[in-house]
Amino acid sequence: MTTDTLIRTFRTVSLFLLLALFVGCTSRQEPPAEAKGRVNATASFVKYFGPVPPVDKGTCYGFVIYFPSAKEVGKVLPFPFFTFDEASLKKVALGKLMAGMGDQKAYQGELVQPFPVGSRVLDVSQAAGTVTVNFSKEVNSIKEQQQQAVVNAVVLTLSQFTGVTKVVIKVEGAESPLEKLVVKADESAVLPLAPPRLLGVVGMKEKGAANVEEIDAFFDRPVDIKELTLSAADGGKIDGDVYQSVFDMAGVLKAKKPLPYQAGTQVKVHWKVTDKLGRSASGDVGVALEIREH
């Protein structure tokens, strides 16, 4: 996949660490001699996840989305995302926040999705330093015990962007009960980050091809891969060279031979990583392989 294709892929999606975003991204076998692109990371991103590796082309934006915690009322957990679309940064961030992370098995039971079905962002506008978010009427049905977490998530997600000094929350253009909670929103609501986690493993193949050519092990933040070994269910090591993905969110094994794997094939993963702020983690786990096409 070319860099231009990569940029088009990222232009319409945000990235967490999220497994779905990296499906189809090209791996980089070695750092470019001279990076021609750049990543503009918010101060919040650097605080929680450290410096961001450069991209080969274009300008990318690294930011944080704060998701409500299922374990501690009112608290939120930060996750890293990226986009190439500066014009819609705030709306992309809010859209992903509302979509939630319920599909991430690595965080099951730790995150809550408080937005009622049908909730939408009607408009995001900024005048001077004030950002006003206008939600659809469904947001008025958020449970009372979850309201502060929602407000914390919205305010912290938007406040990280340059020039934002105040966040106003409206519903259908009118004042909402949520607006009264904005004054309580600050970084004391952010829970400490645990060490990095493995999100999942994806086998990549060309469109229409029968065999897998590479296997990508995705993590929940940018990491340095210290060790990554992939083995078949019978314990046989999968031969290939291991590289880091774009943004260092995954370890990529380029298989020496095509692999006749199907979705659901069990793959054993041995990994050891360190994130950009020195938090280390390791594991030996069996994972059901997902299959995606370039």
Results as ranks from 00 to 15, higher is better:
residue 267 V to S: 09
residue 246 V to W: 05
residue 253 L to E: 09
residue 237 K to P: 01
residue 164 V to P: 01
residue 130 T to A: 10
residue 46 V to N: 11
residue 146 Q to W: 05
residue 39 V to W: 03
residue 168 V to P: 05
residue 21 L to Q: 14
residue 209 A to D: 04
residue 219 F to C: 10
residue 189 A to W: 09
residue 174 A to D: 10
residue 232 A to V: 02
residue 133 V to H: 02
residue 249 M to A: 09
residue 171 V to D: 12
residue 104 Q to W: 05
residue 40 N to I: 15
residue 227 E to G: 00
residue 9 T to L: 05
residue 273 V to Y: 14
residue 238 I to N: 04
residue 27 S to G: 10
residue 267 V to M: 07
residue 93 A to W: 07
residue 234 D to T: 01
residue 20 A to E: 13
residue 39 V to K: 03
residue 91 K to A: 10
residue 214 E to V: 11
residue 255 A to R: 02
residue 80 P to D: 10
residue 12 T to C: 09
residue 20 A to W: 13
residue 120 R to S: 13
residue 155 V to G: 00
residue 124 V to T: 06
residue 27 S to M: 08
residue 153 A to Y: 00
residue 182 V to R: 01
residue 144 E to M: 02
residue 263 A to W: 13
residue 46 V to L: 12
residue 27 S to Y: 14
residue 53 P to M: 04
residue 243 Y to H: 15
residue 106 A to R: 13
residue 111 L to A: 04
residue 244 Q to Y: 13
residue 265 T to E: 09
residue 25 C to I: 09
residue 51 P to Q: 14
residue 235 G to K: 01
residue 1 M to C: 11
residue 257 K to V: 06
residue 133 V to W: 11
residue 277 L to E: 01
residue 203 G to I: 10
residue 129 G to Q: 08
residue 138 E to Q: 07
residue 162 T to I: 15
residue 90 K to S: 04
residue 1 M to E: 13
residue 93 A to G: 11
residue 69 S to I: 01
residue 11 R to H: 02
residue 131 V to S: 13
residue 105 K to W: 08
residue 31 P to A: 00
residue 73 V to D: 10
residue 40 N to E: 13
residue 114 P to I: 02
residue 243 Y to K: 12
residue 203 G to V: 03
residue 253 L to D: 02
residue 216 D to I: 14
residue 208 G to V: 04
residue 205 K to Y: 05
residue 163 G to V: 07
residue 158 L to K: 02
residue 9 T to P: 11
residue 239 D to E: 09
residue 200 G to P: 06
residue 45 F to I: 09
residue 258 P to M: 14
residue 97 L to N: 05
residue 85 D to Q: 03
residue 152 N to I: 03
residue 90 K to T: 06
